[in-house]
Design a protein around this nucleic acid. Structure first.
Length: 1118
RNA sequence: GGGCUUGUAGCUCAGGUGGUUAGAGCGCUACACUGAUAAUGUAGAGGUCCGUGGUUCGAGUCCACGCAGGCCCA
């Protein structure tokens, strides 16, 4: 005979391990896909993680979300292929390798060959793969790890090339030159994606300078010298003093008001006139000095007098020329003019902005618009470049500062007493020259390189771009068809980003990544974009034939340095060299819908079947990363979305809402969590606690609570079922007991269950796992365990194995089995065990795993809202009676005669009547009596239905409410009897109310102990008759005997004999009258009373003392 | 500075389209129940629903402006 498994002290981590083993042994994952062969596919894309770091708890969150919907769709019969993937290229790997080898980017190709270096990257990037695989497995994330796509593989790269070629052919690929964030420490430009990395913008304290730009005293500018000044200066503020030698212009706001102020330089004490925004005068001149005369000043005075002498608007100043501030290098064209800049504000600084076109994106733009040149120097090859080299050092032409790092890139000790940043040295020089008006420390956010932690420079770089702006409208249009969870991320964050789209900067000057497949002649006149290995091989053949390449090489690896060694032949017969850049790694991952199948080079059908994705899910930080690159490529290549539904999940923070970091030590180890609480509790907690798109404050205490409250309760319910089902040999072999023959509570829980099936399905379908989890949890804890099982316990352990008992078993079995299926996507391990434990005995399902089974069907005819409503009434009434008992200190064991319930109408009476038995047994009362209108003691209360009346009466609502309050019992009766009642709003107006316009409820019953909630009122009769008292004693006695049984470790089915000493008459009377009841409850074969009892146990029942002795058939105990 | 987002009990969170006693779980306190027992029930304490204005007969809910936190970007 197969039994339901019974567990003592279930270890949830162990459940995880056992179930995992079962899955492996029986290929359940593979079969969950195979058994759906031929069904509608549900396409899921795995956003590839990088395995060069260890996984964290937030990965459990992200992957649980992915897993839930794939499992759910599988339950619904869809075939869900999930190809795993690895993101393997990019800067993080390179920097890690550099660190381990103790080299810098400059050493690559010198101390180590590019070949060796890349080999090292290839090995390093998969270093933590096994940890990732372990986590994936242990947390129950089902994804195909055996055939993943790997972005460094040749075929993958070849696909990327083919895609780039398509873009190239469409004219979307071009070479440009822009000011970009550049990290001298890492030796690379940074993409906007990289600058988006959390933590890049950091508070730093920089030396800032308000510099004085001296106006040229020429005819054109004489309007600025009308107060007989010797020197007039523009004041411009910069937080990057190192850019001052590259200044070629000043920008003012067209409509901003400026003033000329006469004062003194605070460092040299020279008399000067300065121009700055009118609104900002107060920031640079102390108002206390406003009344001082200029002539009162003597050198070194703290309070510097000033005088506003003239006012201009920005457009007046445009075109004014000034002397170069730091004349190390001369520009090619006329420069040093004031221009109009659309981005100038008076928020901070002076309202005049210093422009260095080589070191600022805005600067470059407005300078180009106004024909202001950049300040350039020639490098050793005669190519023009900025005055700071790619290591971040001033070039030799900047004599005073030649070779100095503009920021601390050489690791100087900043805490050293004599440490002076270059910015400070520049400030000192300008002070000495009388060109600094104010020098101060300023704290602001500044972008930092996300790996080296060093400040970024804005720097001119050659770059290849994808012209995403060409398809901007289409990107926006198609984005509107994507179902974003939450919606705001799609419309707001992502939508706004698309509205302000700039071209995608593709270039990276690094080593480990997908090389740009473009070869160019040295003069840049001719170029070719290679789209496949075959094409490259063919071109190599041509090049070898023509003699530009020495010998044909076989194309084995598309990485550097191999592709760099290939020289191709242009149409006109010139050699072409590969453009040295690599492409942005985000292109790699954005290309996964195509490249995972080696499309477009092969597998057309495979690709078409799996594009676009039905569903993807990643962190919200991917909005401008993967979410964007997927979308951009799909729109440009296929004129389609790449995904139809997307969940952008939030961050996992520590319990205090702080970011987790290994450095701070508040990071939570996912392996530890799973090892301690099992994978299900961790998953359930994360999903049920907050919607995935909200940030999750991860508190391990919450996992404990989830385990206890949800899993503990569910397991308790199962244990209860298993215990008795095993005793009764219930195997679900009987035909289903028709609903009509089941009890009210059976039909109620089945009704609730079917409602649950419906609700949970809707929530999953709406990509809202949190609501699904909460609905399941509420059902299990409140409805199933705390109400159904509690109410029906006796049916399981008492009486014959008859239809009623079978109905109870079937009902509870069904609930458990359905819960296993509904919860399976979120808690795949425990539900697997539950399902299998049930099915092992019943064999109701041929599927041996819950994940091979199908989502339960809703039986609409079993849903009965009337029934659900009256059970709610039963619960509320029981709760009210309990609270009344509590108030009167009458324990539940003491039976009471009756409760009184005022009923307002026949329906209410019928509803309560149907559940009367439940209520009576739950609260241990003999009868329910109803009080209705005919009783003459019912007092009613009336309240306006604000929602309904408000719509009708609007502003007169206050009058209506007052009129309703004035209605007395007769008025209410009239309203109910006649179906209408006329109220006076004021002296003129009247209105007619119908019963629907008001809410009538019962009030207190005079002279009774009552409690009420909402419309319900309950009164309790607390009169104790002799008979009730005796029954109370009998129940107490049963209770004490049961405790004795338990204390003696008797089995449930063990029979006993009871001996009582004849003492208290009241007790004896109760024993006599309730002897059969006592025997039945306590499994006693006999109950005898004697005069004297040896070895008796003393029981205290209220004020009575009872001596008792029980013995089993086996032996005498106690 | 901009975009998005959050703010409800000590903690974690619910509170369609505005409707008159703002809820749950945990925690705390007290009591009860007991053949599910390392469970359960009942009650109590605990709220200026972040603030200020506004719209409305009526605002936790809608609007505006702030404040505080978060994310992303300048």
């Amino acid at each position: 005979m197969v039994k339901y498994n019974e567990y003592k002290n279930l270890n949830y981590a162990k459940v995880g391990e056992d179930v995992l083993e079962f899955w492996k042994q029986n290929n359940i994952f593979e079969r969950s896909v195979a058994t759906r062969e031929g069904n509608t596919p549900f396409v899921f894309y795995e956003g590839p993680p990088s395995a060069n770091g260890t996984p964290g708890i937030h990965h459990v969150m992200a992957r649980a979300v992915k897993d839930i919907f794939c499992r759910y769709k599988t339950l619904k019969g869809f075939q869900v292929n999930r190809k795993g993937g690895w993101d393997t290229h990019g800067l993080p790997v390179e920097l890690q390798v550099e660190k381990e080898l103790g080299i810098t980017k400059e050493d690559i190709g010198k101390k180590i060959t590019v070949e060796e270096y890349n080999q090292r990257c290839r090995e390093t990037v998969m270093r933590f793969k096994s940890q990732w695989d372990t986590l994936t497995e242990q947390m129950g994330y089902w994804v195909d790890l055996n055939n993943p796509y790997i972005t460094f593989e040749n075929e993958y790269i070849e696909s990327c090339w083919a895609l780039l070629r398509k873009l190239y052919d469409k004219g979307y690929l071009y070479k440009g030159y822009t000011i970009q964030p550049f990290s001298p420490a890492a030796g690379t430009g940074l993409s906007s994606h990289e600058l988006n990395q959390p933590g890049c913008y950091k508070m730093v304290k920089d030396t800032t300078i308000v510099a004085q730009f001296e106006v040229r005293k020429i005819t054109r500018n004489m309007f600025l010298f009308e107060h007989e000044e010797e020197k007039v200066y523009f004041l411009a503020w910069t937080t990057t003093p190192w850019t001052l030698p590259a200044n070629t212009g000043l920008a003012v706001g067209k409509n901003i008001k400026y003033v000329k102020v006469q004062s003194y330089n605070p460092y040299t004490f020279e008399p000067i006139s300065v121009i700055l925004a009118k609104d900002l005068v107060g920031r640079y001149f102390n108002q206390k000095a406003a009344d001082l005369a200029l002539t009162d000043y003597s050198s070194g005075d703290k309070l510097i007098p000033f005088k506003v002498v003239e006012e201009f608007v920005g457009s007046d100043l445009a075109g004014v020329e000034y002397h170069q501030l730091m004349p190390y290098v001369q520009p090619e064209k006329p420069a040093f003019r004031v221009i109009i800049g659309d981005y100038v504000t008076t928020e901070d600084g002076t309202g005049i902005v210093h422009i260095s076109p080589t070191f600022g994106a805005d600067d470059a733009r407005v300078a180009a618009q106004n024909d202001i040149p950049a300040l350039l120097v020639m490098d050793e090859n005669g190519k023009p470049g900025p005055i700071v080299d790619r290591q971040g050092r001033f070039v030799p032409e900047i004599t005073d500062f030649a070779g100095m790092y503009v920021k601390n890139y050489d690791g100087q000790d900043e805490s050293a007493a004599d440490y002076k940043p270059t910015d400070v040295l520049i400030a000192i020089k300008l002070k000495e020259e009388g060109k600094a008006f104010k020098v101060e420390k300023y704290e602001h956010t500044y972008p930092h390189c996300w790996r080296t932690d060093k400040p970024v420079l804005y720097y001119p770089l050659d770059s290849w771009f994808i012209k995403t702006t060409a398809v901007k409208d289409r990107l926006i249009e198609l984005n509107k068809t994507i179902n974003w969870k939450p919606e705001s991320t799609g419309t707001g964050r992502f939508g706004n980003w698309l509205e302000n789209l700039v071209d995608w900067n593709l270039s990276r000057s690094r080593y480990w990544g997908t090389p740009l497949p473009i070869w160019r002649t040295e003069d840049g006149e001719e170029e070719i974009c290679i789209g496949s290995i075959a094409e490259l091989t063919e071109e190599i053949g041509r090049a070898v034939d023509a003699g530009v390449m020495d010998e044909a090489v076989e194309v084995k690896d598309l990485h550097r340095p191999y592709v760099d060694n290939i020289i191709l032949l242009s149409k006109s017969g010139k050699p072409m060299y590969r453009e040295p850049d690599l492409i942005d790694v985000w292109f790699d991952s954005g290309a996964m819908p195509y490249a995972q199948w080696h499309y477009p080079l092969e597998n057309e059908e495979q690709f078409q079947k799996n594009f676009p994705a039905d569903f993807i899910a990643e962190g919200v930080d991917q909005t401008r990363g993967w979410f964007f690159t997927l979308h951009a490529l799909a729109v440009m290549l296929e004129d389609s979305v790449a995904y139809k539904n997307v969940i952008a999940n939030g961050l996992v923070l520590d319990k205090n809402g702080n970011k987790m970091s290994k450095r701070l030590g508040n990071a939570i180890d996912p392996f530890e969590m799973i090892g301690q609480y099992g994978p299900d509790a961790v998953r359930w907690y994360m999903i049920a606690n907050a919607p995935p798109w909200d940030n999750l404050k991860f508190n391990p205490d919450g996992v404990v609570e989830t385990q206890r409250r949800f899993f503990g309760t569910l397991q308790n319910t199962y244990s209860f079922f298993a215990l008795y089902a095993n005793l009764d040999n219930f195997t679900y072999s009987e035909a289903d007991v028709p609903m009509a023959q089941r009890t009210e509570s059976d039909r109620w829980i089945i009704s609730k269950l079917n409602t649950l099936i419906q609700d949970v399905d809707a929530n999953y379908a709406d990509y809202d796992p949190t609501r699904a989890a909460r609905a399941i949890q509420d059902f299990v804890v409140d409805d199933l365990s705390n109400w159904y099982v509690r109410l029906n316990r006796k049916r399981f352990w008492k009486g014959e194995y008859n239809t009623d008992k079978i109905a109870a078993y079937q009902t509870l079995y069904t609930c458990l089995e359905v819960i296993a299926k509904l919860a399976a996507p979120i808690a795949p391990f425990y539900t697997e065990q539950l399902y299998r434990d049930l099915n092992a005995v019943s064999n109701k399902h041929t599927e041996e795993s819950v994940h091979l089974a199908y989502y339960p069907e809703v039986n609409h005819e079993d849903i009965n809202k009337d029934l659900e409503e009256r059970m709610q009434l039963a619960q509320t009434i029981s709760s009210l009676v309990h609270s009344l008992r509590k108030k009167e200190m009458i324990k539940v064991r003491q039976p009471l005669q009756r409760i009184l319930i005022p009923v307002l109408n026949d329906r209410m009476r019928a509803q309560i009547d149907a559940v009367a038995d439940l209520i009576l047994s739950e609260v241990n009362v003999k009868t329910i009596e109803y009080i209705d209108d005919t009783s003459g003691i019912l007092v009613k209360k009336i309240k306006p239905n604000f929602k309904k009346l408000g719509q009708v009466f609007g502003p007169k609502m206050k009058l209506v409410a007052a009129a309703v309050q004035r209605m007395d019992q007769n008025d209410i009766a009239h309203l109910e009897r006649e179906g209408g009642f006329e109220i006076m709003l004021n002296e003129e107006e009247t209105a007619v109310l119908t019963p629907e316009d008001v809410e009538i409820s019962s009030e207190d019953i005079p002279g009774w102990l009552v409690a009420n909630e909402g419309k319900l009122t309950v009164a309790l009769d607390i009169t104790l008759t002799e008979e009730l008292k005796q029954e109370g004693i009998a129940r107490d006695l049963v209770n004490r005997i049961q405790n004795l049984r338990k204390d003696s470790n008797l089995e449930v089915q063990d029979k006993i004999h009871i001996l009582l000493q004849r003492t208290e008459p009241a007790v004896m009377q109760a024993v006599e009258n309730y002897s059969s009841y006592i025997c039945a409850e306590t499994q006693a074969l006999s109950l005898d009373t004697v005069d004297e009892l040896e070895n008796a146990t003393l029981l205290d029942i209220d004020d009575y003392k009872v001596y008792i002795h029980i013995q089993t058939e086996r032996s005498t105990i106690i």
